[in-house]
Amino acid sequence: MIKSSFKFYWEDTLLEMLPSRALFLPGAKELLICDIHLGKAEYFQQNGIPLTNNTDENNFARIEKLVKKYNPDKLIILGDLFHSKYSISKTLQKKVEDLPELLNTNVELVLGNHDIGCNIKNLKILDFKKIKNIIFSHEPINFKSNKNLNICGHYHPKVYLKNNGDKLSLRCFAMDTNKNILFLPAFGDLTGGYHCKKSFKKWIIVSEEQIIEI
C-alpha cells in the first residue's frame, strides 16, 4: 500500500521513513539523511566528463524544504556529504559552512569514506553516534547483540522490479533483519545505487511523496 511515510518502533524509539529520502526521529526531533555526494558533477568535469552541476542546487533546496517541514533540533548526515576532497569549490565550501545558519538548526556529520580529507567547518564531526540502543554510522557495523539497531548509509540501496517488458530501478530503505541493519537511501540526486538482496525487507520510494512497503 502506498503511503506518505512509514512509522515503526525500535523498542520505544519511533522512526519514520520519509519518501523524501530521509529518516525522522520524532521523539528526539532528529532528521537523518546520508550520501549526498556534493561536488560530484565537478569531479566528473575535472575528469573530462560533462555533467552539469545544477544538481547540487537541487540537493540544497531539498534539504531546506525538509528542514522547514519537520523543523528538527538536529540534522544528522550519515556520511558522504561530499564526493571528493578534490572537487570542493569555494562556493560549495561556503554553502556548507553556512548551512547551520541557513537552516537554523544544528548539523552533525558522521564521517563517510568520501568525506575523508575534506575540510569542514561549522558542522559537528563524529565517527559514529549512539542513542539508546540505536547506533548510527556511515558503513554498517557488525555487532552481536540483537537488541541494537544499526542505521547506516553507504550502500545506496535500490530495488529492481521487472515484469513483461518493463523494468524499474528505485531507491529504497532496506532492512537486513538478520543483522539488524537499516540502510538509508542515498539523498543526493547524482547517486546511483546497488540492488539489495532478496532477503532484505524493503520500503520503496515511488516519488517524493510516496513510499510503499514490500
Binding site: E42, Q45, Q46, G48, P50, L51, T52, N53, N54, S87, S89
Partner: peptide, 14 residues
C-alpha cells in the same frame, strides 16, 4: 566546454 550552458560546467576540461 562540456555543453552550451557554460555556467553549468565551471571545472570542465577536455
Amino acid at each position: 566546454y562540456g555543453g552550451k550552458c557554460l555556467k553549468a560546467y565551471p571545472k570542465y576540461k577536455k
